[in-house]
């Protein structure tokens, strides 16, 4: 047997000893890492889907609110015009128009 192959056998003997004498961590150390796992799992979840969904719904409502309200007003006026009489100022359209057009001499215009 050559010296080199005997050296290889010696080296393999050392490796075998190294595998059997494997360095082991202390229980206290493993507990410490396990505690870090607990802390990591307990931290608040980042931007979860439900939150994103609510935000999306909020944006939808905000965008559609104005046009929705306008459409609702048109619909009420169309199907129940008599119900709006209570909201007018005694049914005087002229007064109402004059109120909505300040600075305009509506009477003078009508008299022309």
């Amino acid at each position: 047997m050559t010296g080199n192959s005997r050296d290889d056998i010696a080296l393999e003997t050392l490796f075998a000893a190294g595998r059997s004498e494997r360095p082991l961590p202390s229980g206290e150390f493993l507990d410490r890492i396990a505690a870090s796992a607990d802390a990591g799992a307990a931290r608040p979840a980042p931007a979860t889907l439900p939150v994103l969904r609510l935000a999306w719904l909020g944006r939808v409502f905000a965008a559609s609110g104005l046009s929705g309200a306008a459409a609702l007003g048109v619909w009420i006026g169309f199907v129940m015009p008599e119900a709006l009489d209570a909201l007018t100022l005694g049914g005087d359209d002229t007064v109402a128009l004059a109120t909505f057009l300040p600075g305009t001499d509506l009477e003078a215009i009508l008299n022309e």
Partner: peptide, 9 residues
């Protein structure tokens, strides 16, 4: 075995 492991280290 211990000496071998230490030698290897």
């Amino acid at each position: 075995a211990r000496q071998r492991s230490e030698t290897l280290d």
